[in-house]
Structures are given as structure tokens and as C-alpha cells.
Simulated scan of single mutants.
Amino acid sequence: MSDNPLEAAAAELTAEVGDRAAGWDVEGRLPEDLLRALGARGLLCAEVPAGYGGLGASSLHSGWFTAHAGALCSSLRSVMTSQGMAAWTIQRFGDRAQRAAYLGRLTSGDLAAVAFSEPAAGSDLSSVATTVRADGDDVVVNGEKVWITAAAYADLIVVVGELDGLGTAVVVPSDAEGVTIERVPHPSGCRAAGHSTVRLHDVRLPRSAVLGGGGVDLSMLVTTALAYGRISVAWGCVGILRAC
């Protein structure tokens, strides 16, 4: 692809992955130093604008790079999809200060996950039961999320829940008090992608952790965030087909 700013990075990624993907799959873990190095180069969420420390890649070039990663290692591509979804959600719903703070972290080596699915809310995300309750200058988050890609590696988890009867996304540090992350044992595919159950028990955060202050229609919030993820997964599948 001519004039593609990610071609050199793709060649470097090929060399970095080499023949190690099968071993990562058996072990069920990606090298965290590799993930953080890719993140620090902006490659896990390549569409983040340069003003926030990203590469400012087009959707086409980012998709091409995602397909390349998918051809090398589906677990790595899954983490890339997760990071991209988190960045996309922050870009679309965060205010200026939140975009500067969080996107800067995601292009500097921090890793992120997005938590939608729950035990009773898989494809029907209108049934989300996670609550984000205002308490003075803070919010308190309670809920359980399942099959959360990359949560085992994440520094930040964008949690979708309900605040005052409307949808909201809140950025939760994975080491916050009340957060428990438990890896899914022996998943049948993408075994190194860090799929985990995330439990949130009275997790207290500053109100500034709520993207845009909350109050978003849940269906719009979910559709906007998932749109990026579905396109990214499709690009990854293109890569798998090319590698077959």
C-alpha cells in the first residue's frame, strides 16, 4: 500500500513476533514488555490524533496494520482491538481534559480494556446491570464484567454502566481498591489475549473519571464503541485469511 505510514512498523512487528506466536498461545500470555513497547510507539491505537501523542493514522491504514497483526498473532491483534476501542470511546465521549490525559497514557505505554459484557448482558447490552452512583465529588462503581479482552494486561478499564438512568463510561484504574481481575482459564481461542472477569465492588473514583460527565443514551454509547471493535475484528480476520 503506497504512502502508508505504517509499512515500516509492520515490518518491525513481523520481526518482533517472529515464530513466537504459537508459544504465546500455548503459554496463554503475551510478553508485556512487547505490548508496552508497541503502545509507547502508538501502534496499539494508531488512529489517535498526533495532538494526543498518537500517529493520526487513517482508518484504512490502521485497518491494514490490524490485518497484518492478525496474520501474525490473533491474540496480539485482540489486544490491539481492545486498546483501539478504549481510545475510540475516550475520543468520542471524553471532554478535552480527559482526552489529553487518557489518550496520552494510551500512546505512552499504558494498556487498556473496554468492559461491556456481563453475566446477563452479552449481545443484549440494554440489560447492563453495572451501576455508577454519584456520591458527592466521587462516583461509586459496582458490577461484574465477563470475557473482557486484555483486562489481564490493562492499566485502565473503560467500564460501561448506568448513571442516573442513562448510559455512561467510566475509566477505572485496574489497581483501584475494589477491582478484582480473574483470568478466564483455558479459552478455546486467542488464548493469550488476556480475557478476564472483572469484578467491581464499591470502587470509588473522582467524578472526573466519568467520560463527558455521563448522561449518554446507552444504545448510542455501546454502538459507537462496538463499531470500532467490529471493524477491527473484521480486519484481523482478513489477516488470518491471508496467513492461511
Rank of each mutant, 00 (worst) to 15 (best):
G122Q: 12
G122T: 09
S123F: 10
S123M: 10
D124I: 05
S126E: 14
S126M: 07
S127F: 06
S127W: 03
S127C: 07
V128K: 01
A129D: 12
T130Q: 08
T130D: 07
T130W: 05
T131C: 08
T131K: 11
T131L: 14
V132Y: 13
V132A: 10
R133A: 15
R133E: 15
R133W: 01
A134R: 14
A134D: 09
A134Y: 03
D135S: 15
D135L: 13
G136D: 10
G136V: 08
G136T: 10
G136I: 06
D137S: 14
D137I: 06
D137G: 13
D137R: 15
D138F: 13
D138W: 12
V139F: 10
V140Q: 05
V140Y: 11
V140M: 11
V141W: 07
V141N: 10
N142G: 07
G143R: 07
E144K: 08
E144V: 14
K145Y: 05
V146T: 13
V146A: 07
V146C: 03
V146H: 02
V146I: 15
I148V: 14
I148T: 14
T149R: 08
T149Y: 02
A150L: 07
A152R: 08
A152Q: 11
A152H: 06
A152E: 12
Y153I: 07
A154M: 03
A154N: 03
A154E: 05
A154F: 03
D155M: 02
D155K: 02
L156P: 00
L156Q: 04
L156I: 08
I157L: 06
I157N: 02
V158P: 00
V158H: 00
V158C: 04
V160I: 11
G161H: 01
G161V: 00
E162Y: 00
E162H: 00
L163N: 01
D164H: 03
G165I: 03
G165C: 03
G165V: 00
L166H: 09
G167D: 01
T168A: 15
V170T: 10
V170Q: 03
V172L: 09
P173Q: 09
P173L: 10
P173N: 09
P173G: 10
S174T: 12
S174K: 06
S174P: 02
D175P: 04
D175I: 01
D175M: 07
D175N: 13
E177L: 14
E177G: 09
E177Y: 02
G178P: 05
G178T: 12
G178V: 14
G178W: 11
G178S: 06
G178D: 08
V179N: 11
T180V: 15
T180L: 12
T180P: 01
I181C: 12
I181Q: 09
E182R: 13
E182S: 14
E182C: 01
